[in-house]
Every structure is written in C-alpha cells, then in structure tokens.
Design a protein around this nucleic acid. Structure first.
Length: 556
RNA sequence: GCGCCCGUAGUUCAAUUGGAUAGAACGCUUGACUACGGAUCAAGAGGUUGGGGGUUCGACUCCUCCCGGGCGUACCA
C-alpha cells in the first residue's frame, strides 16, 4: 500500500486545517479539545466551518467571537488553499476555499481516477461481513433483498476503506423447519402421483415446492412412493439443493458473490460446540438445572440466565451462534460485522455475552439491525410469510424494475427506517426513479465526451483549469471534493444511504453546470477545462456506482 | 409489563451525530432549447420536526413523562 501523497493530505483539507489550528492553540496556550468540521448549509457561511471557539468558552472564559478571532490571527494558512477565514454568528470560524485550490482539485481527481475516494484506515486489517444467512427453505424475498444489498454494499465500503473483506453466509440445513420442508416436498410428490392426502396448513405452501417434487419425479419416477423409511431424506436433500441453487442464482443476479457458505453442522462435526460447553463449564459460567444446561449470562449484564442445551439434549440456537462467532475470532478477523433483520434483535446480546464469557473482545463485533420492508400494492399492505407463500420474490422484483433500481432502492434509506416499497409505484414510475437521474448524468457526460472526440477536443493542459471560474463550476468541484469524506463516513458508520444521497447532489450540481456552462465551444482552453471537469464528475459518479453495485451506463 | 427501532412538507425520506434560516425527491402551479441527450433546468406553494417539560450560548438530535406505529420478549431459529 502506498503512503498518503501530499495531494491526498490536501484533498482532505480538514486535515491540513486541523494541524494549523492545533498550532494556533499551542501558541495561545488554549487547551486542545475535540471539535468538528461542518459544511455549512448556507453559502455565505463559507465552505468549511469550525465550532471550536464556542466549545472553548468554558475553559478560556472569554467571548467566543473573541476567541475565534484570536485563533484566526494565529493561523498561518496558505492562501493558495484557503482564501479567507472569518468569524461569524455566535463564534463559528468559516473557511473559504481559494479558486486555485478548487481548480487543482480537478486535475488531482483525474490523476487518482478509479482510486479517488479510497481510504487507508482499514489497511492491513481483515473484516468479515455476515449477511443474508437465510436457511434454504424457499426463494429469497424482498425482505432478504434489503439485507443482501446492504451487506454487499457495506462490504464494498470496507474494501474502499482498505480492509480485506470476507463475505459470509451462515446457514443451517438440519432443524425442524428443514424437516417440515422435506415433508412438504414429499406430500407434493405423492400428490403428483395421484395419492390424495391432506396438506397441513403449517407446511410450505409455495408453488416452488411442487416444482421441486416434479423434478424429483422426472428424475426418479415413482421410486420413492410408499416408502416410509429413513431413505426419504431424498426429499429434504433435493429441496435444499434446488433451493440453494435458486438462492445463489438470485444473489448472482444482484451482483453478490459470497466467499464462504458456512454450515452450522460443521460446528458440531469439528467439536467446536462441545468445546464451547467445556470452556463455559470450566469457567463455572454454565450449570445444570432442571435437566437443562444454562449459561450464566447474568454475569454479563443480561436480565436472566439462558438455556443453551435443552433438557431434551438438543442445543438451543444460542450455542451454535456463540460457537460460530468464536470461530470467527479464531479465524483472526479484526472487524466482525453481523447484519440482521429487526426480528433478531433479541438474539445478539446473548451472543455478545457468550463471546465475552469466552474471553474475546466483543467490541470487534458490530451488529447492524435493519428494519423491515413493508410491501404495498398501491395502498394495500401485503403481508409476507415464506411458509404461507404469500410473498414477492427478489427475482420477481428484479424482473419488474431491474437490478440497478433494486439495489439503489434498498440503499437509499437509512436501515433504521422501515422501508415502504410500493410495487405499483416502482413499476409504473420506474422512469422517475432517482437511479436514472444519476445514471443519466453519467450517460450525458459520456455523450459529451463522444462529441468532443469527434471535434478532436480533449483535456491536455493543467494550465487551462484556471479558466474554471463560473459559480456552477465551483459548486460542482466543491461537491466532488466531498467524495472521500462521504466514503469515509459511510464506511465508519455503516450508512450506505448517505452515498446515494450524495451522488444525487453531484448529479444535480452537474446538470446545473451543464445547463449554464457550454462545454464544447470555440474557445479551446475553456473547452479543455470544462472537459476536465466533466471527466472528474464522471470519475466520482462511476466510483460511487461501483461501491453501490449499480451500472455506470455510457448511454441509456 | 419490559427491550430495541420509528414518528419531520400532501406522500416517501434526509439532516455531516449538539450548530447558523430543518433539506431533497415525487405530486401540484408556472416557466426555459433553432447548438453538447428535455430521463434536464429555473421559479412558486407546502413545516409549531407527534405532544408537554427539562439540560445550554444553541435541540429534529441528549434526559424525562405522555400519545401512536413496527419488531421482539421461549428449554422456536
């Protein structure tokens, strides 16, 4: 990995200002404390703003505006970067970028190209992201879709932050649900062969069960009819095989590739389940009561102890979950990200307690809980349940609106929010979806570049960038400048929706520039400079699209 | 009952984690190309941030009490 170049330090001009401010504080012998940089909402408030003076009031016991002025007086800032710094409002220090700095930004974005926006803070660290983790009992639904896209994109962000990332899918193909699944297929199989039996309500109702039964029938004819013996695992196993094939196909279509599919069963085969039990017992953190084995989770702040092995001898889900996370630690991950739906909210404190009990650092685990997708058909709410087969599959959604819209839609909202997904709206108004707005900006730039090539115009000389001085040019450059900061924030805080929002702002700034500033003119230097700005914009949009996993079309 | 999430414009959602005058999109009203893609741009209307109290220079954000919605609260996963 390369070290930060001089430019990259400047690219995050906050870092430059930070060191200058620090020195000023030393000179004034003011205490150092944590403050923040803001991008003001109002243009007259400058390009960057610092609230430091107001925070110093208690320590310094002076008027915050005076403090701010003293800090400014002791700043030794290069006017090639910052044109001016001034006190404003209750004591903000507002900084204004210089034109030279903004012009230089364009050429430097072009230099960094598809690396622009990458970060170093995860360098040499390994991260694991676990998501989807749906058991193979049916096709992926829209609910899974949100998690799949979130997980994949968060993994992308971590890669852009420098981490080496493992995408992992955890599943369990034993258990009661899988038995019911196998029995459901068996009944359908028998039904196809004319044996009329009642199909229980709590069995899997979906049409895909019949499809699987039909495939078995095609392959093996009636070989498994009237065979109530144990070999009937064929139904369960076939179901698992076919369904997993289907799930993987859906994920692939979404552009998602897992590095590891982790089967819960392996934790039993490898003895890790037993090891966890023994370790807990050795530490006196597990005890027998009423025929069950309990984990002393109250030692770790939980409201009551939890059963980890039932009196029947069967482990509860907690035990393999804990063993699985121990396995993650043993594989040496520095950062472990778990993505769950809101329905799993109650389970993760048990896992964290278990991990702590085993002596691992639970602060390495980041649990992300996303809220549900509520599906609407117009104004009518659709209840989803895999077993009742009352759902819209992820594949069906992609058939309707395409992959890019699907991904963007799931990413554009905070994961803390319930996502209302109106199918009618998504289908009928897909042309007005924000993803097209952004892709259109990209396609438009490509079109300009094609026209430029025909006219034999291209960006060659950095000196021409001085010609960029229109208000809309500066506004666009300032937006492009934010990209690395946005990527960092998204990666640190696991908030992909902030990138979708940011990219829309970039597109808006570009469309305004496009409307006001003609790119291909008879003034060759100006054309060059504006072409460079187009290229820089294209770079940011394309890099953003790459992270989000949507296409950057040359034309639409 | 308890835990977590949510409540912001007609609708769907943001708000750089405590900052300055709460912003977008859709929808609605009115405008803009004899040239780079009109899937665009400009202007307008639209708000007591669910409600009360508190913390401070400053609150959509933090604390507290209500109201409303979602998800949980197993020796189910």
């Amino acid at each position: 990995m390369h070290e930060l170049s001089e430019w990259r330090k400047m690219q995050r001009i906050e870092w430059y200002l930070q060191s200058k401010i620090e020195r000023a504080l030393e000179r004034l012998s003011y205490p150092k404390l944590a403050y923040s940089f803001d991008i003001p909402k109002i243009e007259t408030h400058g390009d960057l703003s610092v609230n430091l003076a107001m925070l110093l009031v208690k320590e310094v016991r002076q008027n915050p505006r005076q403090i701010a002025q003293q800090i400014i007086d002791n700043l030794d800032i290069d006017s090639a970067h910052i044109e001016k710094a001034e006190v404003a409002g209750p004591g903000f220090i507002n900084f204004f970028f210089s034109p030279q700095y903004l012009q230089k930004t364009v050429s430097n974005i072009l230099e960094e190209g598809n690396q622009y926006g990458r970060q170093d803070f995860g360098k040499t660290q390994n991260a694991q992201v676990e998501f989807v983790s749906a058991n193979p009992t049916g096709p992926l639904t829209i609910g899974h879709g949100r998690q799949a896209v979130l997980g994949d994109t968060i993994a992308n962000f971590l890669e852009w932050a420098g981490y080496s990332v493992t995408r992992e899918y955890y599943f369990n193909n034993a258990g009661r649900q899988m038995r019911i699944l196998g029995d459901s297929v068996k009944l359908r199989y028998e039904g196809l062969l004319g044996k009329a039996t009642e199909f229980p309500e709590d069995y899997y109702q979906g049409e895909y069960i019949v499809d699987i039964a039909r495939k078995i029938l095609e392959k093996h004819s009636d070989a498994f009819l009237n065979r109530p013996d144990k070999s009937l695992d064929i139904f369960k196993d076939s179901a698992e095989t076919y369904i997993f094939e289907d799930i993987k196909g859906t994920l692939q279509r979404l552009g998602i590739q897992f590095d590891v599919y982790f089967n819960e069963k392996d934790l039993y085969d490898s003895g890790e389940i037993e090891q966890v039990i023994r370790l807990l017992k050795d530490k006196n953190l597990a005890y027998e009561k009423e025929g069950a084995l309990w984990f002393r989770s109250t030692e770790f702040g939980l409201d009551q102890d939890r059963v980890i092995v039932k009196s029947s001898g069967e482990p509860t889900y907690r035990l393999p979950d804990i063993a699985y996370h121990r396995d993650k630690f043993e594989r040496g991950f520095d950062l472990i990200v778990d993505i769950f739906g809101a329905d799993h909210i109650a389970t993760y404190p048990d896992v964290l307690a278990g991990i702590k009990a085993l002596g691992y650092d639970d602060s390495k685990i980041k649990v992300l809980i996303h809220q549900f997708v509520t599906l609407y058909q117009g104004s009518e709410k659709v209840k989803m349940s895999t077993r009742r087969a009352n759902f819209v599959t992820l594949d069906e959604l992609m058939d309707e609106v395409g992959v890019d819209v699907t991904r963007w839609f799931f990413l554009m909202r905070s994961m803390d929010s319930h996502l209302n997904f109106d199918l009618v709206l998504a289908k009928s108004q897909s042309d007005e979806n924000p993803v097209y707005y952004n892709q259109y900006a990209h396609a438009r730039i490509c079109s300009i570049l094609r026209n430029a090539a025909e006219k034999e115009l291209s960006y060659k000389n950095e000196v021409t960038l001085q010609r960029l001085e229109h208000l809309y040019e500066f506004q666009l450059i300032k937006k492009l400048l934010e990209f690395p900061t946005v990527v960092e924030r998204c990666a640190r805080e696991f908030t992909p929706h902030q990138l979708t929002q940011y990219l829309s702002e970039v597109s808006t700034a570009f469309h305004k520039f496009y409307t006001e500033c003609w790119v291909l003119t008879t003034d060759k230097d100006l054309s060059q400079a504006r072409l460079a700005l187009c290229l820089a914009t294209k770079t940011v949009l394309a890099n953003g699209f790459t992270i989000l996993g949507v296409a950057a079309p040359e034309s639409m």
